[in-house]
């Protein structure tokens, strides 16, 4: 591990506490590489939500604050106002960002606050044991949709699409998947660069896997991820907006 681990990782907190096979490890590794390549770990203040993401509270050798359900965006907006020279990252899951914290996320995007939000979408509330979330696809079995999620509860909330509707043209908004780690890293770097250079809002949704709650092996986990990639298209939303203009 020593040879490939990002330099920005806090070694004393490894091995990390995420479940075996969890997608967070992949996201946080690529984020670590992004910090390393951009040489910014010392300039980053990392805000993390509660839920599985809380396990990243001491993941990086970077100042980190773990806050309450869905409140990470608001904390980082306030932080960034006080420290405009710092790089403010907010890290959360689909429950924190799209349900309990959606209001804060939408308004930060609407105001174009210069923070970067990274939302890891594993289609369920994982820390609480796998309940249905706003992004759970129709038919998926969870502990609150034991017979498969019903269509009447929503067909899967499309966050980047929603946010790009109200975000400023210079906001960077994208969806990526852990199935393509290189693209994931490049996208994270673009989102951070947009905060640094243009001092505007950025948002990256990362499609991820949850083998523990899905009760899947590696192959089955990636089969579900492939389905998620069909439901939630991998793309940059900013570019499209510019092309339209």
């Amino acid at each position: 591990m020593e040879n490939i681990a990002p330099i920005s990782w806090k070694k004393s907190s490894k091995p990390h506490l995420f479940c075996p096979g969890c997608g967070h490890g992949i996201v946080l590794k690529q984020l670590g590489y992004a910090f390393d390549e951009m040489k910014i770990a010392r300039d980053v203040t990392f805000g993390i939500d509660i839920g599985c993401s809380l396990l990243a509270w001491n993941f990086f050798d970077a100042d980190t604050i773990q806050t309450h359900h869905g409140r990470t965006t608001s904390v980082m907006v306030g932080y960034k106002m006080a420290k405009p020279e710092r790089i403010a990252l907010a890290y959360m899951g689909d429950g924190g960002g799209y349900a309990i914290g959606l209001q804060a996320l939408l308004h930060a995007a609407y105001r174009n606050n210069p923070v970067t939000v990274i939302l890891v979408n594993n289609e369920n509330y994982a820390m609480t044991g796998g309940q249905s979330s706003p992004t759970t696809p129709v038919g998926m079995v969870t502990s609150t949709s034991p017979n498969g999620k019903r269509a009447e509860f929503g067909k899967g909330l499309h966050g980047p699409e929603l946010i790009s509707e109200i975000a400023a043209p210079n906001a960077y908004i994208a969806r990526v998947s852990i199935s393509n780690p290189i693209q994931l890293k490049i996208t994270l770097k673009k989102a951070i660069e947009n905060q640094v250079k243009n001092k505007v809002f950025s948002f990256v949704e990362v499609l991820s896997i949850c083998p523990t709650n899905w009760k899947t092996n590696a192959k089955e986990s990636f089969e579900i991820l492939r389905e998620a990639e069909k439901l939630y298209p991998i793309k940059e939303f900013t570019k499209e907006k510019e092309v339209e203009k």
Binding site: T45, G47, I65, T67, H68, R71, S74, V75, M76, V77, G78, Y79, K80, M81, A82, K83, R86, Q103, A104, L106, H107
Partner: peptide
């Protein structure tokens, strides 16, 4: 957008020393 964001915004700012 609401008092929750206001309160957590205060916390973000004080964490920064403001």
């Amino acid at each position: 957008e609401d008092e929750i964001a206001a309160g957590f915004g205060v916390l973000g700012a004080v964490l920064a020393g403001e």
